[in-house]
């Protein structure tokens, strides 16, 4: 589904990614771990099409297409979803209006019929139960005045509604208490399916207690320094990152 080859990228002339190679197949969950500054978020943002990054080498193919040549909205319509590390507050835009607009934009792209407000509300309310969000959230402005945990749950709600083929979660677990973490994990697990792939960018192993990954990669100094199965995450938790990163920067 996703194939990253020798990806190099700069932020403001500083090379952050120095040759990433990663293959993610449908049905798989990959965890990308690593210390601060290793390039995890950069990778997630580049895959979603955010400005401010310059790809200097390499390629990313998504379902056989050149992902890097696509606009952010085209990627979204093709099924790519990024749960942001810092979801943006948008005063004046109603949460459910935004969600419906996004839902219908994606449907339109697929040549499907637009869904009206009543039908959409029914659909959203089902998903909201999963992530334990109060319906009052729907009529608030997008993320405005939300707590950190509420913002992250709102991201998961969007993901559940938009049902992406490739979900990228950028530190969705950071800053969450254990209850919120379980809710987020529940949302992720609900979406797990043979047609769907997920990449979880995370600093800590604790999300992986609730969402069991197929592969774990450790990013260090812009490269994947080590890959393994879920046991790698447990080992990192015990031993820290130093034993992996020491080898990478050498």
């Amino acid at each position: 589904m996703l194939s990253i080859k020798n990806l190099h990228a700069n932020v403001a002339d500083k090379e952050i990614l120095k040759g990433i190679n990663l293959d993610v197949k449908a049905g798989e969950i990959h965890a990308v771990m690593g210390p601060n500054g290793s390039g995890k978020s950069t990778l997630a943002n580049i895959l979603a099409g955010r400005d401010g990054y310059t790809v200097t080498q390499g390629s990313v193919s998504y379902q056989g297409q050149d992902l890097l040549a696509m606009d952010p909205e085209t990627r979204a319509c093709a099924g790519v979803f990024l749960a942001l590390q810092y979801p943006v507050e948008i005063p004046g835009v109603n949460n459910v209006y935004f969600l419906k607009a996004a839902y219908n934009a994606i449907r339109k792209h697929r040549g499907e019929e637009q869904v009206d407000a009543v039908k959409f509300l029914g659909l959203v309310k089902d998903k909201m139960k999963l992530v334990d969000i109060d319906t009052a959230f729907l009529n608030r402005a997008v993320n405005e005045g939300f707590s950190g945990g509420e913002k992250k749950r709102n991201e998961i709600l969007q993901m559940l509604v938009l049902e992406p083929r490739l979900a990228l979660l950028d530190e969705t677990d950071s800053g969450l208490d254990i209850d919120a973490l379980k809710v987020v994990a529940k949302g992720i697990n609900a979406l797990r399916s043979p047609e769907r792939a997920m990449v979880l960018v995370t600093h800590y192993q604790r999300l992986l207690d609730y969402v069991v990954p197929d592969c774990v990669h450790v990013l260090a100094a812009g490269r994947i320094a080590k890959s393994g199965d879920k046991s790698l995450a447990a080992e990192l938790e015990q031993r820290g990152y130093d034993w992996v990163t020491a080898g990478a920067s050498a």
Binding site: D71, P72, E73, A76, V88, I90, L162
Partner: peptide, 27 residues
């Protein structure tokens, strides 16, 4: 940031701009 956020959810650039412009007044 807000423009990217809206686009990353599937809204095209023009719609995202219009939505944010309207929101600016709606406040």
């Amino acid at each position: 940031q807000a423009l990217f956020y809206l686009r990353s959810r599937g809204l095209d650039l023009d719609t995202a701009r219009e939505l944010l412009t309207g929101a600016f007044a709606r406040v």
